[in-house]
Amino acid sequence: MLNVKNLHASIGENKILKGISLKVNKGEVHAIMGPNGSGKSTFSQVIAGNPAYQVNSGDVLYEGENLLDMQPHLRARAGLFMGFQYPVEIPGVTNIYFLKNSLNAIRVANGLQPLDAYEFNDYLGQKMDEVGISRELTRRAVNSGFSGGEKKRNEILQLLVLNPKLAILDETDSGLDIDALKTVASGVEKFRSQNNGVILVTHYQRLLDFIPPDFVHVLIDGEIVLSGDSKLALELEARGYNWVKEENGSD
């Protein structure tokens, strides 16, 4: 469903991605791991279409379409979801308004009827129970004054509510204590199915204990230098990233 070919991207003068290629099929979970500053977040942002980043060259096909030609909201409506490393606070906009309008925009774009307030409330209630989010959180402004854990749970709630085709979760595990991590991971496991794909961008192995990936890729200095199965993550956890750099001739 996603086919990234030799993608180069930069922010301002800084070249961050230096030729990434990656193929994700339905039913697969890919983990992208790498040290700080390797370009993991840039990769997520570029796939989601953040205008702060420039794509210099390369192609990205999403379900056969040229993803890079699509505006961010059209990517979202086509089923691409990004879980933000730093979910954005939007004071003055309630979470429930945000979720309902987001879901309905995507539904309508896909030829479905929008949910009315009652249908949406029922639907949302189910999903909230699945992530263990209190009802009170939906009445508050989007992420506004949320704790780090609440913000990440809110991202997972959005994932379950919007039920996209491809989810890129950018460091969804960062800053979480073990209980919150388990909740977040179980939300992702609920989402995971034969009909969708997941890209987990993470710094640490521990998230992968709860969400076993099918593939693990190591991103260093803007390139994927090594790919393997879930055992690779364990090896990275035990040995760090330096050996990968040395063995793959990267400095």
């Binding site: 279409g49 953040n50 961010p72 990004m82 933000f84 945000f98 309008n101 879901l103 925009a105 774009a109």
Partner: peptide, 19 residues
């Protein structure tokens, strides 16, 4: 904020309007 809203399916115009 504009990008976050657009990533959730809001058009650029709707994102501005919401904000």
């Amino acid at each position: 904020q504009l990008f976050y809203l657009q990533q959730r399916g809001f058009t650029p115009e709707d994102a501005r309007k919401v904000l």
